[in-house]
């Protein structure tokens, strides 16, 4: 299985993401620059964290017009797994591939520490290796992770089980309904503020993020055994 790590000017978690896939997951991975025309050769697309285009105007606001976004949109329509972490999540929101928007953390401070997350839906291509309701430890590192959407959208998210992760216990950033990660209705685009790529080895303090990537591989293998 071949992963793409999309690199925008200002991405800074791209190397962590690459490392997680190559060395811990043991799958093929390549960096793809923000002006790439096509992502056809890849089976899954990863949008890493960072500060794309300096986060000028709003986080993700300028990145959403990068050339590669056309290819990401196409991959999303084709049903390929697309994971946006942190700034990657913010870009997916700005691009309208996921509903809602991000506000500054309610504390107005940048928060960088490990948090507890609850797996709210394990029937997804990103979470099938977790138990339903499993509490995992994953680091967060953001200043704008205070998720917001209107009531109608929130009801849809709840009804369609699109809320994939919630913060467990204390809500670190004021996020609506303690939302930490959501997916699209089709279930192939996931955005999350916590960094699973930073929790893939004992030396990093947690290996809980690895199962997310393993779930993607499992989904892909099963899909390709069926069609083979």
């Amino acid at each position: 299985m071949k992963f793409a790590v999309v690199v925008f000017p200002g991405s800074n978690c791209d190397v962590d993401m690459y490392h997680a896939i190559k060395d811990e997951l043991g799958e093929e991975v390549e960096y793809v620059w923000h002006d790439a025309e096509s992502l056809d050769e890849f089976d899954a697309i990863l949008l890493p964290g960072g500060f794309s285009y300096g986060d000028y105007l709003r986080s993700g606001a300028i990145a959403r017009f990068a050339n590669v976004m056309k290819a990401i949109r196409k991959a999303a329509e084709e049903g390929k797994p697309i994971l946006g972490v942190c700034n990657g999540f913010q870009i997916l929101l700005e691009a309208g591939l996921l509903p809602g928007a991000m506000r500054r953390n309610h504390s107005l401070t940048f928060i960088c520490r490990s948090v507890a997350l609850r797996v709210e839906n394990n029937e997804t291509m990103f979470t099938s290796m977790y138990e339903q309701g499993e509490v995992i430890t994953i680091p967060i590192a953001h200043g704008e992770g205070n998720y917001y959407c209107d009531e109608k959208t929130l009801n849809q998210l709840i009804q369609n089980k699109q809320i994939v992760f919630r913060y467990e216990g204390e809500n670190p950033n004021g996020s609506l309904e303690k939302i930490a990660g959501i997916m699209n209705e089709k279930g192939n685009v996931l955005g999350m503020m916590p960094h699973p790529e930073r929790a893939v080895h004992e030396l990093l303090g947690s290996t809980d993020g690895l199962k997310l990537f393993q779930s993607i591989v499992k989904y892909w293998r099963e899909a390709h055994v069926v069609t083979a």
């Binding site: 105007l57 709003r58 606001a61 017009f65 929101l93 700005e94 509903p99 917001y148 959407c149």
Partner: peptide, 8 residues
Amino acid sequence: KLLANTVI
């Protein structure tokens, strides 16, 4: 398109 995010 760009200057405002009309969601918020």
